[in-house]
Each structure stands twice: as C-alpha cells, then as structure tokens.
Amino acid sequence: MNIFRLSGDVCHLVAIIILFLKIWRSKSCAGISGKSQLLFALVFTTRYLDLFTAFISIYNTVMKVVFLVLAYATVSLIYFRFRKSYDSESDSFRVEFLLVPVAGLSFLENYSFTPLEILWTFSIYLESVAILPQLFMITKTGEAESITTHYLFFLGLYRTLYLANWVWRYHEEGFFDQIAVVSGVVQTIFYCDFFYLYFTRVLRGSGKMTLP
C-alpha cells in the first residue's frame, strides 16, 4: 500500500458518497446517468467475487463491501425510490456498445483463462468506459449541477492517483499490471475534457457547469 493508492481509494469513496448523498438529500436523480451507476455496480460485482475466497487485508475486505453496498444502494435510489426523477430520455447511451466489446476483449486479452480471472479482466475493461453514459448525458443536457461535477472530479482524481500508484509500485516493487495500467490510462483520458471544463468553469464559481 502507498499514499497514492490510499488517497485514490479515499477519493473513490468520497465520490461515491457525494453522489449517494446528493440523490438521497435532494430526493432526485435528475442529471444522473443510471446506466453509469449500473455499470459501476457490475464492475464491483465482477471484480470483488474473490471477497470470500481471497483474504488480503481488513482494509481490502471492508472497502470492497462498502463499495458494493453503496453502488447497489445508489442504483436502487435511481431505479426504484426516486425513479420518477430519473431522466431516461437523456440517459440514452447504448451500453451494449460498451458491454459487447469489453466482454469480447476480456476473453481475448487476459492473464489466465479462468472464470474468476476473465470476470476480473471484464471488470477492469468495463470500469474504463463505465463513466461514458454519464459524460454523454451531460453533453446531451448541456449542463451538470455543480455537485455532480464534484462527484466526477473525485472520480477522476481517484483514477489519476491510481496512475501515480502504478508509477510508484513499478519504481519501488517492479510491479506492473499491464491490463490494469492500459485500461486505467484510457479511463483517465476520458476525464481530461471534463477536468478542463471543471477547472475553467465550475471552480470559477459559476455554479453549474454549462457546456459551450
């Protein structure tokens, strides 16, 4: 464990909590892509199957449980409790265009052809594109509430810190997980455009982030 990975995990947790509390307190999921949240729940489900078979540390186990619980709780808020405020019209990204290539690639490019390993690889590839429906929805509506942009900021920060974590681990331990790194770089690139808008608009106190 290193400070980059730890702070990355904390940012990830903060992002998920920001989103959950926003929906819970505003009793609305307007502007939130339910599809992205479904994909994240699928990412955690397919990645954390080793929750009961491989014990790594208390921290690892606790964080996995927390991420799974919050992911499913957020999905249930969107699709059940506050479904009247779910804007399915704007959340129109075709997730099958993500799931099919990701599933195909996880069968082709993996470390070992076992169910657990293929599902883990699937979760790694899926996570790198899971945010796209949300980013697409923002471009479609042309705006995002500032709290939603803070959610995206912490999510992007978590991914950026993980890149630093991999540089550190390669330098310190010679550890290099090619699938995770390549997929993580792709994922972080998707946030670059958002980061630009976030720093130039939201942090200038313009409240909402409205796209040009």
Binding site: R5, Y111, F113, A180
Partner: peptide, 10 residues
C-alpha cells in the same frame, strides 16, 4: 498466458 497477478488493488 502467464500467471494471474496478485489482486491486492480495489
């Protein structure tokens, strides 16, 4: 296919 790497990251 070399061996699966340790899965210690979240």
């Amino acid at each position: 296919d070399d061996d699966a790497l340790p899965k210690d990251e979240l």
